[in-house]
């Protein structure tokens, strides 16, 4: 992967950089807390953490309009926080309590928010791709200006339904951005062992879909790529592919010992390319912010995360009647 260092972009406003820092840090701390609660047995089942990949969703949310739609896989906590969903509701869903976004009936992998145009939270690898194109289909049908950000991983990029969707999205010029979050491992299988060509962004070429690779550890680069892709879609030119090269620090899920890669590999990535650290040092070195100011942000984020964890622990258990509701509309 490209190892471009984040450099100060003179056009970047302090406010934007601070926002990036806050949003990415919120995801990081939230996920660390989720990991902790999982260890305490308060979160069950599968729990897929987003640590390391924060710049992807934070960058793209900076390119999105509020009315745009987003849909992703089971590694979804970061997406929900980035699009403005309440950390309390997300954490309470992780603990399976009634204050959760799905009243405890969805869990880590299945949360939704109509209000925030977040359409899940899908557990079957690749299934969200046609669904995302369908959201875009609806926008086109209803003549909305919105774009749908459809996130999936490098593993999902090998699913057949992805290519069925590429074909129809291109054929019908659907306003959908296919965001391939390439974190280099499909669960435990490294990309070179599962994927015939490393340039996943070229996979749309045979359908006439433009694609580009983006440094996913650079939030500004991600935001810029997102703006370009969204402009393409909004101009009625059909879908666009962004292969965002990123890295997941944690295992595939909480139960993954990650024996398929070395500790050094992970350490190196953390030390050299961490997206949050990059922005932090940029803020300080460019004198856009002081250590003190940043500490205040860190403290605020810590408080939000601690209080959402408290909320998630305190939130009442789901009433038994809920077993039988929401099956039919």
């Amino acid at each position: 992967m490209a190892t471009k260092k984040v450099t100060r972009k003179s056009t970047e406003k302090k406010g934007d950089l601070i926002k990036f820092y806050q949003n990415m840090l919120l995801i990081r701390r939230f996920e660390e807390k989720a990991g902790q609660l999982y260890g305490m047995g308060l979160i069950g089942g599968f729990c897929h953490l987003y640590i390391g990949q924060e710049a992807v969703v934070v960058g793209l949310e900076a390119a999105a309009k509020e009315s745009d739609k987003r849909i992703t896989s089971y590694r979804d906590h970061g997406h929900m926080l980035a699009c403005g969903m309440d950390p309390n509701g997300v954490m309470a869903e992780l603990t399976g309590r009634s204050g959760g976004y799905s009243k405890g009936k969805g869990g880590s992998m299945h949360m939704f928010s109509k209000e925030n145009n977040f359409y899940g939270g899908h557990g079957i690898v690749g299934a969200q791709v046609p669904l995302g194109a369908g959201l875009a289909f609806a926008d086109k049908y209803m003549e909305n200006e919105s774009v749908t950000f459809t996130y999936f991983g490098d593993g999902a990029a090998n699913q057949g339904q992805v290519y069925e969707t590429f074909n129809m999205a291109a054929l019908w010029k659907l306003p959908v951005i296919f965001v391939i979050e390439n974190n280099q491992y499909a669960m435990g299988t490294a990309q070179e062992r599962s994927t015939s060509s490393p340039e996943i962004y070229t996979r749309g070429a045979s359908f006439g879909i433009k694609g580009e690779a983006v440094d996913g550890m650079d939030v500004v680069a991600v935001r810029d790529a997102g703006l370009k892709a969204a402009a393409h879609c909004r101009a009625g030119k059909g879908p666009y592919i962004l292969e965002i090269k990123t890295y997941r620090y944690r295992g595939h899920s909480m139960s993954d010992p990650a024996k398929y890669r070395t500790r050094e590999e992970v350490q190196k990535m953390r030390a050299q390319r961490d997206p949050i650290e990059s922005i932090r040092s940029l803020l300080v070195s460019e004198k856009l912010s002081t250590e003190e100011e940043i500490k205040i942000i860190d403290k605020e984020i810590k408080e939000i995360v601690n209080s959402c964890a408290e909320y998630a622990k305190e939130s009442p258990e789901v009433p038994a009647e809920e077993l039988w509701t929401d099956i039919y509309a």
Partner: peptide
């Protein structure tokens, strides 16, 4: 519908 707690 069920997984979203009735939202969609």
């Amino acid at each position: 519908l069920y997984m979203s707690g009735g939202q969609m």
